[in-house]
Amino acid sequence: MLDHFGWNVRDLARSVAFYERCLAPLGLTKIDAGDGFAIFGDRTRDDAPYLWIGTLVPSFWTGEHRPGAAPIHVAFRAPDQRAVDAFHREGLAAGGRDNGAPGRREDGLTYYAAFLIDPDGNNVEAAVRLAR
C-alpha cells in the first residue's frame, strides 16, 4: 500500500543510530545513505516500503517540513512478539524514550506492540497482529 515515507531530523547521526538499533529486530536495515539522508528498508524485497530520514529538505517539500514541527506516529510491522520486545529494548539502548512497554493491545484490532519516542519526538511503534 505504501511506497515510502520520510521526515526531517535534527541530528542525522543520532537518528541513524537510533533507527539502526530499533529497526534491526524487524528485519529493516540502512540500505542507502548520502550527504544529509539515510534510507531504511528490507534488503530482501525490492517492492517493500522504505523510510527516508534526513537533514536536507527535498525540493518538493514545503517550508512547513522541519524536525518535530508536527510529531508523527508510524507503526512498523514485526514478525513476532520477540521482535517487538527487541525493538523496544534496542530503541531504549539507542537513546529513545519509552512510550509504551511491549504488551498486548486491543483497540479495534488485537495486537502486541511497543512504543518509543525517537530523538525528534516522533512516536514509533512495532506491532504484530494476534489471532482474535
Rank of each mutant, 00 (worst) to 15 (best):
G103I: 03
F60E: 15
L26T: 07
L56M: 13
Y19E: 09
A78W: 08
D3V: 13
D120T: 01
G6V: 09
I39Q: 11
P49K: 09
G34S: 07
A113K: 02
R14G: 00
R77W: 01
A69L: 11
G34I: 02
D120H: 05
V124H: 11
A70I: 06
R14N: 08
E20F: 01
A69P: 01
L116D: 04
W52N: 02
V74Y: 05
P49E: 05
G96I: 02
V9M: 04
F18P: 02
G34K: 03
I53Y: 04
L23H: 09
V57A: 12
W52I: 08
G54Y: 08
R14M: 01
P119E: 06
G108C: 09
Y112N: 07
F5W: 15
G96P: 08
P67E: 06
V57F: 00
P79M: 04
I31G: 13
E125Y: 01
P49C: 08
G27N: 09
D11V: 06
H65F: 13
E64K: 15
A78I: 06
F87E: 04
P119Y: 02
P49I: 06
Q81I: 05
P71V: 10
D32S: 15
R97E: 13
D35L: 05
P67H: 08
A126P: 04
F40C: 11
V84Q: 05
A13H: 10
H4P: 05
R97D: 03
G91D: 10
A101I: 03
R77A: 15
G6I: 07
H73F: 11
D47E: 15
Y19G: 06
L28T: 03
R77G: 14
T110N: 12
P49D: 11
P67A: 15
L130T: 06
L28C: 02
A126C: 09
M1L: 13
A83I: 01
E125P: 07
Y112R: 04
I117T: 14
P119G: 07
R104L: 14
I39F: 04
D118F: 04
M1D: 13
W61M: 14
M1G: 15
V9W: 01
A70R: 12
F87G: 10
R21H: 05
G6M: 09
G68I: 00
D47Q: 14
D11S: 10
D3P: 04
G103S: 10
R129H: 15
A93S: 12
A78T: 08
T55K: 07
W61V: 03
A114P: 04
A127R: 04
H73P: 00
P119V: 02
